[in-house]
Design a binder for these strands. Structure first.
Lengths: 222, 222
DNA sequence: GAATAACCTGACCATATGGTCAAGATTTTA
DNA sequence: TAAAATCTTGACCATATGGTCAGGTTATTC
């Protein structure tokens, strides 16, 4: 478990603090506000979002937001770091003993599911990166860099054994991240190009297409 | 040539209006302001950018910006539509008689070059899409959709003839766009992950990696 | 070279919004 | 149940910034 934020929700809180009243109201309202913030920041960006709108989305008056968060930057920070932490934990697949095809397919599939089910998180993160990553830069240089280094060893081992094509592991991740997150970040574009037909089956088709594309590129049939 | 904006620069201006004084000053100052706007909007977004900063970047006082553009939205619109028009014209490759491997490699290479040489344009466009494409949506539904439809016929013909693997042509473009533009849009992330070594050779390495990745996925060796 | 059109800009205004606060309501604790 | 702690919120303020404008300068035309 990667520890980035040290909010109480990271600890034993889930049981205790829900029972005792200690921080019950605080936990509930902060969660509401963070979720609202993710939505609004994802849609409008740090400067485009107003604290009034975040509060309204959370169903609370603006002054209440400032009771829990010192500033707009503070709640932005919490939202972005929360997403990063969640992502680093969620995608921890790829162990050396796995079958490369299965492991990579699983990873890509999980990323696609995340893009379709939680697009706002991806969009907010995209905005943070577009702005030069003022908040997460430090974690990209450490946590994420290490994560990629660890996974790269595994990929390298696979291609050295001839189990897959020799790809540059970091670039493999860059492509997978880009190709999967594009379905969250730039979904307007995709919807416009594909037009109004068959909107329902689209997630499955896209997922299969991206998975087999990546597998083929890795020399893993498909 | 796709016509989206009807600014004078699209017509015979290049010769005549540079010679006659007619619109000379206007053309020069509008160009300066648009270029500055692309930079500033790319870095900060529509709401984060200030007209004062755009003007300053262009080396003009703010009131001068408002002499040429009615509002911040107006200059934003001009910047975004200008990029779209340029892109639709620039990437018109892929003719049926080409060799698939060469044609696709050329296209990917051109997109990579654009990402490295004009990252601000890509970033601004990314922001526009993240915000739901309020300005370009209409053109995505028409110009871009048609563009993809035309290219899709060619790709389809190639795979029908067995010249390449059977891929969904639109999804091929989505992946290529995502994988190439990520080097402009999310370059911070890439730089953080790759660390401080060999900064110079990186463009070439990345380009080769993405090109051969895509070719392999298309069943075109690599 | 005078009249006309195009361009320039410091000073200014109106509004939106980030943030504060004081007074009161609820909840928790002992 | 009373005191302490936590939570709630309408009303308010200060500032940043989008946008205006009047008066002046430069360029173009005839």
């Amino acid at each position: 478990m990667v520890k980035i934020l040290n909010n109480p929700m990271n600890e034993d809180s889930s049981v205790r603090s829900v029972l005792r009243g200690g921080q019950r109201i605080r936990a509930r309202n902060e969660a509401r506000l963070i979720n609202a913030a993710i939505q609004v920041f994802a849609d409008r960006g740090l400067e485009g979002a107003t604290t009034a709108r975040i509060a309204e989305t959370a169903g609370l008056p603006k002054a209440n937001l400032y009771y829990y968060f010192a500033s707009k930057e503070t709640i932005y920070r919490r939202a972005v770091l929360g997403i990063l932490e969640k992502w680093l934990d969620a995608f921890n697949a790829l162990s050396p003993d796995d079958d490369p095809a299965l492991a990579i397919a699983d990873y890509v599939r999980a990323k696609m599911t995340a893009s379709f089910n939680h697009p706002a998180e991806s969009r907010l993160f995209a905005r943070e990166l577009l702005s030069g990553a003022p908040i997460v830069k430090h974690y990209l240089e450490t946590e994420l860099r290490d994560w990629v280094a660890r996974k790269s060893v595994i990929i390298k081992a696979w291609s050295d054994k001839g189990l897959m094509a020799p790809v540059s592991p970091p670039h493999l991740f860059f492509i997978i991240w880009a190709a999967t997150q594009t379905f969250a970040d730039f979904s307007v574009q995709i919807d416009c190009v594909l037009g109004p037909e068959d909107r329902s089956s689209r997630q499955e088709i896209a997922t299969d297409e991206i998975v087999s594309f990546v597998l083929r590129a890795c020399g893993l049939g498909g």
